[in-house]
Amino acid sequence: MSVEINRDIDKFQESVVLGLTAKQLIDSVLSVLVGGAIVLISYKKVGLTVSAYIAIPVVAPIALSGFYSFNGMSFMQMMKKRIHFMFKVKPLIYRSTENVSELKDVALEMEAEKKKTEIGTEGKSTGTETDKKDSFEKSKKKMIKVLILSTAVVIAAIGIACGCKFL
């Protein structure tokens, strides 16, 4: 009799049914049930193809939460991190200091900032840093507008498809 043992114990998964773990089984059954319910509810109004397209964005995150993992994180943990980094993390600004003249310039700027703070005036960041922050904020606002617009377009397309079926 031979018993197979995984070389990496951390990657061992105990299967419940058909080689699926309990989490994978629950999420796959849940995604099939939710997708089937959406298709059955919207089938008579918009047709089979459109109802399947409506169900996919709802079912995909449910199915991915059971099967997808990245660097040891589940799908939901990864999406929370991604959303956090998209909206709440400030950009890092790299400033090259590869030659002696640039090092001297940086040292002079630091001395000037120290003098400003000693006098009592508030030290402000250089124009390039504020430009980068402003461009980051502009691109962030633009991304939010694009997300809202694309969501509105999808909702409008679904509404038009439903409206066409009623005519």
Rank of each mutant, 00 (worst) to 15 (best):
F87A: 04
D134H: 09
M143P: 08
S15T: 09
E102D: 13
L48A: 04
G72R: 04
K141A: 12
E14M: 07
D134M: 11
K132R: 05
V16N: 04
R95N: 07
P57L: 02
G35E: 03
H84I: 01
V106P: 11
K23M: 00
L30E: 01
M73H: 14
I54A: 06
L147G: 13
S69D: 01
G47I: 02
D27F: 04
F136A: 10
S150V: 10
D131K: 03
S139D: 10
L167D: 11
C164K: 15
T128P: 02
T128K: 13
V59A: 10
K145S: 15
I83Y: 05
E4T: 14
L167V: 10
F136G: 02
M143A: 15
G72Y: 02
T21H: 01
D131L: 10
I93F: 03
F70I: 03
Y43E: 13
L25S: 02
V16L: 06
A22P: 00
L30K: 00
M1V: 06
L149C: 05
S135C: 07
K114I: 04
A152P: 00
F136M: 04
F70P: 00
D8W: 06
S65H: 00
K44Q: 14
V89E: 08
V16Y: 07
L147W: 11
S2R: 10
G163C: 11
L149D: 02
S135I: 08
V29Q: 09
I155F: 09
D131M: 08
I155Y: 09
L167M: 15
V50A: 09
V32S: 05
V58G: 04
L64M: 08
Q24L: 01
F70W: 03
I158V: 06
T117D: 11
A37P: 05
I9C: 12
A55R: 02
S2N: 05
E102M: 09
G159N: 12
S69F: 02
S150I: 05
I56D: 14
D131F: 07
I41P: 01
N71M: 06
I54S: 01
V89Y: 08
L147I: 10
M78E: 08
I9K: 13
G163W: 11
V58L: 10
E14Q: 13
V3G: 08
S101H: 12
S101D: 11
I83P: 04
T128R: 15
V17Q: 09
A55K: 02
D105L: 12
D105G: 12
K140N: 08
E111A: 03
V17D: 14
A107Q: 12
G35C: 07
V89G: 01
I93A: 09
V3P: 02
N71W: 01
I62G: 05
A52N: 06
S31P: 04
E14I: 11
K124S: 14
E122N: 07
F87P: 00
T117E: 08
S28F: 06
V17L: 14
V58M: 09
K80A: 14
K115H: 12
V59H: 00
I93Y: 01
V34I: 10
P57F: 03
D8S: 08
E111W: 01
G120H: 04
I26E: 00
H84Y: 12
L48R: 07
G72P: 08
V32Q: 11
A107G: 06
L64R: 03
H84W: 07
F166I: 15
V153Q: 08
K140F: 12
D27M: 08
N6T: 01
